[in-house]
Design a protein around this nucleic acid. Structure first.
Lengths: 212, 212
DNA sequence: CCATGTGAACAAATTCACAGCA
DNA sequence: TGCTGTGAATTTGTTCACATGG
């Protein structure tokens, strides 16, 4: 089996963007594209595209460019988007409910297959065809659904505890929406989505531009 | 007036984290802390804390550490969190509605002051005390509310158009939740929050760990 | 004396520039 | 010829190690 390279988040995130761009080109019926054209159309860097791709093999034709379909297929493969990933969503407040209905989490290779909340009023209710269950059921949920990814959409103060529940139940990858840094366990990959930090960054730039 | 340094996103995002950590310490009644202790408690790097802070001045006391209250105050100031920032939220689908109710966007210095959607069925309705208005009202909304930040929670295919509406109306900072790279205008800062990219990154790591 | 603040060393990421191949 | 693929150069970010000063 070919070794799967350990690649940086930065590169990986760009691969997702390249793949999206290629899908758009496919819709437009474009068959071939050079790194230069791709970069121009989607505001990327041609050298960076080539460097990023180079980590996974040679995909292009020298002097010509890339075959759009072929490259899209290879990137889908590299990112593992041809295998289905099942998601357990923990926390059904405003954000959790929105995420439960979010198309991006219910199309392509990702799918929410179970909902968990601590609130007795929510447990037993049906949301988007799924019954809300208590955190103590997590081991069984993970076993029966074979969910692999956990989404944490719980309040800040219980995020760590729910991270532990997910990890104990065998979940290896967690997307955390709580505005807090989780104490990580070896073998469990996690990624934060932190709106507040992003807003504060924008705030800084507003402040800068005001003072000029 | 002191010049406001042009600082990297990476540093800026860490400053947000430091400030959060300090607020927690304040709640616990901690008065003084060294970069080492701060790093140990919140899984950070002591040198990096000092380097990051150094870009904005000298905040500590050599041989002692930092005064928690004082440093928190200075960071609040650096990040511009003592001035109120008003937000226009564009797009009231699942995600937009959740964001409209999200506490992080309605506490501290950030506040959603206007809601915009294109759907005639939504226009005129009241959500969280605010009346939903059409995009064509944006210039007037920005003028009367003096909103400075736009949040885009619209579908991918209309994200760019709505970015333009916001920019035309005078918005200078935009937080984009649509999974697409916006073509930016000079003078308008934007920041993407892209769940799908994050999920795909987790997917890659699952694939890696499966093959070992 | 001890933790900050910082130049110097190191590491990571990006960009350059061109060799190599269709 | 023209664009990919890639070492080498550059830039950006992090860590080290110590001089500085309360």
């Amino acid at each position: 089996m070919t070794a799967i390279p350990d690649v940086s988040s930065l590169t990986l995130n760009r691969l997702s963007i390249y793949l999206r761009s290629l899908r758009r080109l496919q819709e437009q019926g474009v068959l071939r594209i050079s790194s230069k054209e791709l970069a121009d159309q989607f505001h990327l860097s041609p050298t960076q595209i080539r460097k990023d791709l180079a980590q996974f093999g040679e995909f292009g034709i020298r002097g010509v460019g890339y075959d759009v379909d072929h490259l899209a297929e290879r990137l889908t493969d590299v990112l593992g988007l041809n295998t289905n990933r099942r998601i357990v969503l923990v926390g059904l407040g405003n954000l959790g409910l929105a995420l439960a209905h979010y198309v991006g989490f219910n199309s392509g290779s990702f799918r929410v297959v179970a909902l968990v909340d601590l609130d007795p009023k929510k447990i037993g209710q049906t949301v988007g065809g799924l019954v809300v269950r208590p955190p103590k059921d997590l081991p069984e949920i993970v076993r029966t659904t074979r969910a692999e990814i956990g989404i944490l959409a719980v309040p800040e103060d219980v995020a760590q505890a729910n991270y532990e529940f997910l990890a104990d139940a065998g979940i290896r990858a967690i997307l955390n929406f709580a505005p807090t840094r989780l104490r990580r366990r070896p073998g469990v990959r996690s990624k934060n989505v932190d709106f507040r930090i992003n807003l504060e960054e924008l705030g800084y730039f507003l402040k800068r531009s005001e003072s000029s």
